[in-house]
Design a protein around this nucleic acid. Structure first.
Lengths: 155, 155
DNA sequence: ATTATTATTGCAAATGATTTGCAATAAAGG
DNA sequence: CCTTTATTGCAAATCATTTGCAATAATAAT
């Protein structure tokens, strides 16, 4: 059993909550994914194993996890109004989304700290959190675009 | 008449569109604002001058502007699923949102370029766009929090 | 200026993601 | 095993945004 299931179990117990089959299933899937699924994508994966699972249970589970800081939700510019859920690593990290395949790549940046403190000093603000989002083509999709160009060029 | 109205006029003409009273009103308000209003906030400002204006006209106008790259839309983490519209400066810029008063401050960062190229090199991706979002307390709200603390402390 | 053309509007209804009320179900403690 | 009550599935509600359509009004043509 993975870390996330374990951790959730402990926290649920501490707050009088219950570890249900539905939660265990969702947590297991969630920690097996490198991707950042939408609620519906997670739901579609989960009903393969439990067809009676309901989408609202998925949302309720994700919101609970979010409140526990075990998952974070974000909306990417490419996909207005739809949230993606990230089984949050404890450390601060940033995201790149491929505008073609919608895959999300996480990355770190030592420069981010300087950006924050620079902003703080200039504005007298106190920055608590923040993140960087980049958009473009991942290496795979760059290749495919190149192949298509070649194909079209050859015709 | 401001730049935005002017520019929109030119583009509308070029594409067989029409400069209506509603558009002129919305554009005028938009370029007079330093803030990043939601569609509804813009609507509420606009109906003071034209009470018959409809919210869907506001959305249609904003979407057209977005398509023309005269306005950009973004969703801040603090406000799930609600878009804010930014009468986009031509240059790349970033945002800070105060989690208390919801005010948005724009800022530049020379370091952003390095972050992009660093990511590109590490991942073989090509980064087209991106942005930084910071959250925290603006200088005003820091003061107010301080005042409240003092007040509570003094009681 | 007047008229014809058709882009744009206001309105109401639709959409799509997410949330909520509620009765039925099932963990966990005793 | 029984009891308590957190959690579920379901259906209906919400909220921001979008869309179809008939009426209106900017522009082009006369």
């Amino acid at each position: 059993m993975g870390d996330l299931v374990q951790e959730a179990h402990v926290r649920l117990h501490a707050q009088g909550g219950r570890m249900t089959a539905q939660r265990r299933l969702l947590l297991t899937i969630l920690e097996s994914l490198r991707e950042h699924p939408t609620a519906e994508e997670l739901f579609l994966l989960a009903i393969k194993q439990d067809p009676s699972l309901n989408l609202s249970t998925v949302y309720r589970t994700l919101r609970w996890l979010e409140g526990e800081n075990l998952v974070s939700a974000r909306i990417f510019a490419e996909e207005r109004r739809q949230e993606r859920f990230d089984a949050a690593l404890p450390s601060e990290h940033h995201h790149f989304m491929c505008t073609r395949c919608k895959n999300v790549i996480e990355f770190d940046s030592e420069l981010f700290g300087s950006i924050k403190s620079q902003f703080q000093e200039l504005n007298g603000a106190s920055v608590a959190t923040g993140s960087i989002v980049l958009y473009g083509l991942c290496s795979n999709c760059r290749k495919e675009d190149f192949d298509i160009d070649n194909y079209l060029g050859a015709k």
